[in-house]
């Protein structure tokens, strides 16, 4: 491979800067020289600030921030997260600005308010 692709924390921090660096240090984000990401923004997830990339899917932002469970199934009450990531399985259903939406089909915007239906 000619191009370096590193999922490492130091690259993340130097590209992204101070805010949210701790969260990104744990992230699975792939960084490489061929792709320039925009400045990160902050969204609200269940009231807490979460760093995200504008334009990425809400599902990606949540996964990158360490959320694995997005909801519980209505009948068996078992934990669920994204499964198909292409808008078919409906497993990543969340509430965005008061509206039910499939997280993998919604793009992140600064200040977006996302709520996951999780037990406290």
């Amino acid at each position: 491979m000619s191009r370096e692709i590193r999922p490492t924390s130091d690259v993340a921090c130097c590209l992204i800067g101070g805010h949210g660096a701790a969260a990104l240090a744990m992230s699975q984000r792939i960084f490489d020289a061929a792709i320039l990401r925009p400045e990160q923004v902050t969204i609200s997830v269940n009231g807490a600030p979460v760093a995200a990339m504008p334009g990425e899917s809400v599902a990606s932002a949540l996964l990158a921030a360490g959320f694995t469970t997005f909801r519980y199934s209505p009948r068996g009450a078992t934990p669920r997260g994204p499964f198909c990531l292409m808008g078919v399985c409906q497993e990543c259903m969340v509430t965005i600005e008061g509206r039910r939406a499939v997280a993998c089909q919604e793009s992140v915007r600064a200040g977006m308010i996302v709520d996951l239906d999780l037990p406290q």
């Binding site: 061929a34 792709i35 320039l36 990401r37 925009p38 990339m53 334009g55 990425e56």
Partner: peptide, 9 residues
């Protein structure tokens, strides 16, 4: 994502 800029192959 449309907000990501590609600067290579």
């Amino acid at each position: 994502p449309a907000s990501y800029r590609i600067q290579g192959d």
